[in-house]
Simulated scan of single mutants.
Amino acid sequence: MANRNQEPLNVRVTPSKKDEWKTAIGDDETLAGVVRRAVDRELNNEYVHVDTAEHLDSGEDIDFTEVTTDIDLLSGQVEVLQSQLDDALTPGSMPPEDQLSEVAMRALAHIPRYDDLSDHVRREISQTHSDQLIGIKTAIEEHETRIDGSAQAIAFKMDDDESELIVRQALIYLENRTTETVQSTIADGTRHWVRDV
């Protein structure tokens, strides 16, 4: 029975063309489905031009040196900026290292783990991002996850008198000065820490 919410579209092709198309499609596809998908891809400009595809298939090595050099340069600049941001956002005197270490070890138990993400979100990250941390950032920004690794949330979970400022300093200490697998990303203007990424 036809779906009443759809409009029929008649397209005329030669019998030989129709047979050619039917032969080319898989057993689990319909000709109508392939035509719909092809029209959508054409209208959304999702096809790669044949000259580009031939160039990529030619086996020629493409020199990405300039691109990777630029990426390395940008990564270095981001690290410097992140360090400067850490200094700017954590004003005041730094507590003694033994106090910072103690707070860091207590905070560690409250940092969300990568495995805390739902199976769906982890699967999406692995399929769309080569860098899991970028995937976590995207998941937080797109509200696909409810984990909150911000200094404020971790300070709240610690349920003691440590200020958010000291917890933030302790989290930075964990990430930069220990062997714990703690990393951070900035999502929607807030820095989030995650472990075991």
Rank of each mutant, 00 (worst) to 15 (best):
H129K: 15
F156I: 09
A38V: 11
D148Q: 07
R177G: 00
Q132S: 14
D61V: 13
D72C: 00
V67R: 14
T69E: 10
K17Q: 08
G59Q: 08
D57T: 04
D57P: 06
I147G: 08
K18Y: 03
L43Q: 05
Q127M: 15
T23A: 10
M105S: 04
F156E: 15
D61S: 13
P8T: 09
H129R: 15
E162Y: 12
K157E: 12
E162T: 15
R113N: 13
N44T: 14
Q82C: 00
L74G: 06
K22M: 05
D148Y: 01
K157Q: 11
D72T: 10
I154D: 02
L174K: 02
L31A: 06
D159T: 11
L9C: 02
R41D: 15
R113V: 07
A107Q: 05
D19V: 06
L171N: 01
V35A: 09
V78W: 01
Q77T: 00
S184I: 02
Q132G: 08
M1R: 12
S163Q: 12
Q6M: 12
V35F: 01
D70Q: 13
D161C: 11
I136V: 15
K137F: 05
V48Y: 08
V13N: 01
S118K: 10
E46P: 03
E42R: 00
S16W: 12
S130Q: 14
L31R: 02
T14I: 07
Q99N: 05
F64I: 15
L117P: 05
A109L: 11
V80T: 09
S93W: 03
R12Q: 07
P95A: 11
D28Y: 09
R146Q: 15
S58F: 09
D159M: 10
D159A: 13
E144H: 12
R36F: 00
V121E: 09
N176L: 02
L171R: 01
G189D: 03
E7R: 08
H49N: 12
D119G: 14
I62S: 10
D160N: 15
I134G: 07
V121H: 01
T178I: 06
A32I: 02
K18L: 13
D72G: 04
N10I: 11
P91K: 03
S184C: 03
E141I: 06
D148E: 07
A104L: 08
T179F: 04
P8A: 03
I125R: 09
P95I: 10
T23V: 04
A107V: 08
R41S: 13
L81C: 01
T179K: 11
A38E: 05
A109P: 02
L100Y: 05
V48D: 09
T69P: 00
P91F: 04
